[in-house]
């Protein structure tokens, strides 16, 4: 198992949103998270990415194997597309960005400032970042926002290539990516029922 989540309870703004969540991902698997707005998908992904601590339960994953992509792409408008990608490649200790540019058809824009791109193109640049990190576990939050059908297909292709090479992807999304091998997990089922009474907040009552 590359990613193990055990009895996880998570909170947003001090209020538990999901509880007793258990799942795991083995090599080559894709897990799609579904659930209504505010059900805690983003909080779950941020917890798995290590940005916030869980209320209880365990997340087992090599931190050095994970890459996280949130709602915002982290693109600098005044840097060119190539500069943006090169930066992240260097941060993750890689050098080559050509395959990432090709996978998301960004080659023609490589020397253009990222600020001049359209919303969908920016998103493609944000997703291309995943390819230059060389990481095994992709943790993606709504990756297809503002992508057209063609770009969604590009993204699905990139995910397929990634898992075919032994990678793992955890994706929160509302649309059908056309990935037949993907499992689906509806987090609505794990909605926190009562306020989890932890040692401290519970003591206030």
């Amino acid at each position: 198992m590359i990613l193990n989540v055990t009895d996880l309870t998570i909170a947003r703004g001090g209020i538990p949103v999901l509880e007793d969540l258990t799942f795991s991902l083995a090599q080559g698997q894709v897990l799609v998270l579904r659930g209504p707005n505010g059900s805690g998908k983003t909080t779950l992904l941020r917890t798995i990415a290590g940005l916030q601590p869980p209320v209880s339960g365990r997340v087992e994953v090599q931190p050095e194997s994970l890459v996280y992509a949130g709602h915002a792409d982290g693109i600098k408008a005044t840097l060119t597309v190539a500069e943006n990608l090169n930066f992240w490649a260097q941060v993750f200790g890689n050098a080559d960005i050509s395959h990432a540019l090709a996978a998301f058809e960004l080659g023609a824009f490589a020397d253009r400032p990222a600020g001049a791109l359209s919303a969908g193109q920016k998103r493609r640049l944000g997703l291309a970042r995943l390819l230059v990190t060389g990481r095994v576990v992709w943790v993606l939050d709504e990756p297809t926002v503002s992508l057209d059908a063609h770009a969604v297909a590009m993204f699905a292709m990139a995910v397929r290539t990634h898992v075919a090479g032994g990678g793992v992807a955890l994706i929160a999304t509302h649309i059908d990516l056309g990935l037949d091998e993907a499992r689906v997990l509806d987090v609505g089922y794990y909605r926190a029922r009562a306020l989890a009474v932890d040692d401290f907040d519970g003591a206030f009552l």
Partner: peptide, 16 residues
């Protein structure tokens, strides 16, 4: 600026 455009999240989960 890095906070607003999400770079800070990405940097925090990077190897740095």
């Amino acid at each position: 600026l890095d906070w607003e455009d999400g770079s800070l999240d990405l940097l925090a989960t990077s190897p740095l």
